[in-house]
Computed example of a mutant assay.
Amino acid sequence: MTELNTTSHPIDQATWSRRESFYYFTKMMPTGFTINVEIDVTATKHWLAARQLKFNPAYLYLASRVIAEIPELRVGRNEAGELVHFDVLHPSYTIFHGDDHSISSLWTAYDAQFEQFYANYLADQETYGDQHTPMPKAPRSANTYMIGSLPWTHFTSYTPLPFGPLNTFFPVIQAGKFVEDGQHGWQMPVSVTIHHAVADGYHVSQFFERLQTVFDHPETYLA
């Protein structure tokens, strides 16, 4: 199993380039936003099928790998409540129980090597996958982010609606059902919701651009 990486680096808010934006979007006009796009998953879907590998852990891994490349998506608070950049984020994802149609939230330690992350994912499924509780695996580290999928619905828009103050800075990612387009291959809708204090549309656009790149080249990013 992967040793859990919780390494973080303090943000000096006196010199931080987003200091004024962070203040504005947390104190004056607290705001988050959502962007939805279609990602072509054809190459990765075929690559995984040829090797009899599951799609979901590849999706979790590739999203987490791209997040590790974009500092604005890794701003959070450590256990002491300090504002920091984490080195990586670990995916917390939904598992579906077919017997009663309930869900649980499980997390898996991110590893830079897909083969090891895949093994971590399978081990967590084996240990916790049948536990019908909201959060079967504890404790969670401070650098765990929410990512999920709705494999039954090919949506055009998805927006989480918190019933309290928006106090998390990590992205919330949701994928939908992928469908085959005769002209463009297999398309999967992906939604990213994030606090405007730490990221702008540019940063989320960079996430989507890089996510498409890694899905286009599984032989480079998964092999």
Rank of each mutant, 00 (worst) to 15 (best):
T2P: 08
L4A: 03
N5M: 03
N5E: 02
N5Y: 03
H9A: 10
P10E: 07
P10V: 08
D12V: 02
Q13H: 03
Q13M: 10
W16L: 10
S17L: 09
R18C: 07
R19K: 12
E20T: 03
S21N: 12
T31K: 06
F33N: 01
T34S: 14
N36Y: 00
N36W: 04
D40E: 11
T42E: 01
T44A: 02
K45L: 03
W47C: 04
W47L: 04
A49G: 08
Q52S: 12
L53C: 02
L53M: 11
F55D: 05
F55H: 02
N56E: 11
N56I: 03
N56D: 08
N56K: 07
N56R: 03
P57D: 07
L62F: 00
S64F: 09
V66L: 06
I67L: 15
E69W: 06
E69R: 11
E69Y: 03
I70N: 02
I70W: 01
P71F: 01
P71H: 05
N78H: 11
A80V: 13
A80F: 12
A80I: 08
G81H: 14
E82H: 14
L83T: 15
V84G: 14
D87M: 06
V88R: 05
V88T: 13
S92D: 07
I95K: 00
I95F: 00
G98T: 10
S102E: 12
S102A: 10
S104R: 01
S105D: 10
S105Q: 13
S105N: 11
W107Y: 15
Y110H: 13
D111R: 07
Q113P: 02
Q113H: 12
E115N: 08
Q116N: 15
Y121T: 07
L122R: 03
A123Y: 06
D124R: 11
Y128H: 05
G129F: 05
D130V: 08
M135G: 02
M135R: 15
K137S: 15
N143M: 09
G148R: 08
L150W: 03
T156C: 13
S157I: 06
S157R: 08
Y158F: 15
Y158A: 13
P160F: 03
P160W: 06
P160H: 08
P162L: 10
P162D: 10
P165H: 14
N167C: 11
N167S: 15
N167P: 07
T168M: 15
F169I: 13
V172T: 10
Q174W: 10
G176A: 11
F178W: 13
F178I: 01
V179Q: 11
V179T: 14
E180M: 08
Q183V: 09
H184Y: 12
I194T: 04
H195T: 11
H195D: 12
H195Q: 12
H196N: 01
H196P: 07
V198A: 13
A199Y: 04
D200N: 12
D200R: 01
H203L: 05
H203T: 02
V204P: 07
Q206V: 09
E209Q: 09
R210T: 05
D216G: 09
E219L: 01
Y221H: 14
L222H: 05
L222Y: 05
A223E: 15
